[in-house]
Amino acid sequence: MTTLPLATGNLPLPRWAYVPGEAVEADADYETLAQVTALVPSRFGGHVPARHPALRYALRLNDHGYFWESQEILEAVWAAAPQGGRERILLRACIQIATANLRLRMQKPHAAARLLGEALADLKALGLRNAGGDGFADGFPVLALAELVKVKRGRPQLAKADWVAFGSVNRT
């Protein structure tokens, strides 16, 4: 196992994207994911830094079509996020979006629509909470992401091509 540099642009993408049902779970690239989850502390103090390498890597994974892998890293970051914090709400929405993207790839549009609805509810709830800090949720374009999810979810029939990329929303 090689050591990963801290700059997210240098973190390698997994060797392949795991899709449940298309391969056995043992085929997931656990070695690469373990290297990244090792960067996540047991607890973040106060907030999840927006530039934390594991968080940025998880968003990058999603935007490159590694939805299952993105979900795995986001869940590790979520578990370390402060209880009751804004980041936890946004991370949960991001996990739901990555999972919805995976369901779209698996051709399960109804499950994807349900997950996008849950993510949209979290994003709306997050918009009602006070901002003002250096955390992930403070600089993330929550309203733009909520609008994108709303548009995708409003389509009559979701398809594989309707997946949501975090990088497609403009940062504030």
Rank of each mutant, 00 (worst) to 15 (best):
W78F: 07
Q71R: 15
T8I: 00
G132Y: 01
G9V: 07
L128F: 04
A76L: 05
P109L: 06
T32M: 08
H64L: 04
R171E: 13
P41M: 07
R88Q: 15
D63S: 03
I97N: 11
L158F: 01
W78P: 05
A79Q: 14
E69D: 11
A7K: 11
E87G: 13
L148Y: 09
V142G: 08
D138E: 10
E25Y: 10
I73E: 09
L102W: 07
G139D: 10
P109W: 07
A137D: 04
E72L: 07
L33A: 06
A98N: 12
A34C: 09
F136A: 03
E87A: 15
K108G: 02
G117H: 02
P41H: 09
E69R: 01
A76C: 12
H47C: 10
A159Y: 06
A23S: 15
W163N: 09
E75C: 03
Y66F: 15
R60N: 07
F67R: 14
V40S: 06
P12D: 01
G117Y: 00
T172F: 02
P49F: 09
A113S: 11
A161P: 00
V19Q: 08
P156A: 14
A50C: 10
L11C: 03
G65M: 08
P156H: 11
Q157I: 07
A58E: 03
Y66V: 04
V36I: 13
P141Q: 12
N62R: 10
D29K: 01
G135I: 00
D63L: 00
P53E: 06
Q35T: 10
R60Q: 04
A137C: 07
C94P: 02
V19P: 02
R86V: 04
A137V: 03
Q71C: 13
L102N: 02
A34S: 13
A144T: 02
D122T: 00
G154L: 02
P141C: 06
A23D: 13
A80L: 04
H110K: 14
F67E: 12
L6C: 09
V19Y: 09
K124S: 08
V48F: 01
A131M: 06
H110Y: 11
L33G: 03
V164L: 08
V19T: 13
A159R: 15
G46E: 06
